[in-house]
């Protein structure tokens, strides 16, 4: 598990005034390991300074001729200084993790999988809000679509980006473009032009089929205790889904955790109403703006 950056102390490799470089054989694995464990690592030299990134603990490592005098803009920052000349990788990690344990808060394991909206492309059509069954999307005070509940997003499920008609939804950790943020090419645009009919999806056709298939798979699995058959059933379900909705790429875990058909339809209705309300408010705002600031008539 990796702790969040701000909960972890920030580690500063000090190679500035009155210090020597840290041994390269120690520095390389140290930086790799610290980053993999969720720390922020900064190196400063004689020509650089370090800014405040909001941490409350700063661990300064170096080979010092004289201990550096570091001043912080933040009074809430506690500075720990250590000369690493006689340290090994293990002893240093133990020291750093020891400080971190005193300040880190436990948090649930969560892979940062969530949609990111490309507002250069988004037209605020609200299809994503209508489509997502997990309340990931919402609207802000300006009635602009926004990602409100990232942690509700189902890991490895990029389905909302598949239904976005403008290719405006990114999942940076997705395997392929343009969903991962890669540039959008003409083929992508042609594919998106074949819009998925959201109302048909939410009308129950796809979801009820998925739920039905999933229930059959679960039932067969429980009766026969046949792992292979259950897996094959899931695979057939996925194949069917791909055929029907051009490969929305919804993971099997998400399919098997879908709510009941009644719940889906109720949720779909709520989402639809929310989207319609936001669109109506947008239109009203536009109308009010046009009334207040009518287009200038060209004068000759």
């Amino acid at each position: 598990m990796i702790a969040t950056n701000r909960e972890r102390p920030r580690v500063l490799l000090y190679e500035g005034v009155s210090s020597k470089q840290i041994d390269a054989q120690l520095r390389r694995p140290l930086v790799r390991t610290l980053l993999d464990r969720g720390y922020t690592v900064t190196r400063i030299t004689e020509s650089s300074t370090f800014g405040n990134l909001g941490h409350t603990e700063l661990i300064v490592l170096g080979v010092f001729d004289q201990l550096p005098s570091l001043e912080s803009e933040s009074k809430a920052l506690t500075i720990h200084t250590r000369d690493v000349q006689n340290d090994t990788l293990e002893s240093l990690l133990e020291y750093i993790d020891g400080i971190a344990q005193g300040v880190s808060e436990a948090r649930p394991h969560w892979k940062p999988w969530f949609p990111v909206i490309d507002y250069d492309r988004c037209t605020n059509c609200m299809q994503c809000l209508s489509f997502c069954l997990f309340d990931v999307y919402g609207v802000n005070q300006a009635n602009q679509i926004t990602v409100q509940n990232q942690t509700n997003c189902k890991t490895d499920c990029p389905a909302c980006s598949r239904v976005c008609p403008e290719v405006a939804i990114l999942f940076p950790k997705y395997k392929a473009g343009p969903i991962n943020g890669d540039e959008i090419n003409q083929d992508d645009l042609r594919r998106e032009a074949m819009k998925v009919d959201i109302s048909a999806l939410l009308g129950g056709d796809i979801y009820s089929m998925l739920k039905d298939r999933s229930m059959k798979a679960k039932s067969r699995f429980s009766k026969e205790r046949d792992d292979d058959r259950a897996l094959k059933e899931r695979q057939r379900c996925m194949d069917k889904l791909k055929t029907n909705v051009e490969g929305l790429d919804i993971p099997a875990e998400v399919l098997s955790s879908l709510p009941s058909l009644d719940q889906i339809q109720a949720k779909a209705q709520q989402a639809k109403e929310k989207a319609e309300q936001a669109l109506a408010q947008q239109a009203a705002s536009r109308q009010q703006s046009d009334t207040t600031h009518p287009s200038a008539t060209p004068s000759n």
């Binding site: 990796i2 969040t4 470089q21 390389r28 464990r37 909001g54 942690t151």
Partner: peptide
């Protein structure tokens, strides 16, 4: 790391973004 150049390095920008990290 070997270059001697100053740098900032973070564990995961996605994670920082999700948490709206003020850093």
């Amino acid at each position: 790391v070997d270059s001697g150049h100053p740098f900032e390095s973070v564990s995961d920008l996605c994670e920082m973004s999700a948490r709206k990290d003020p850093g």
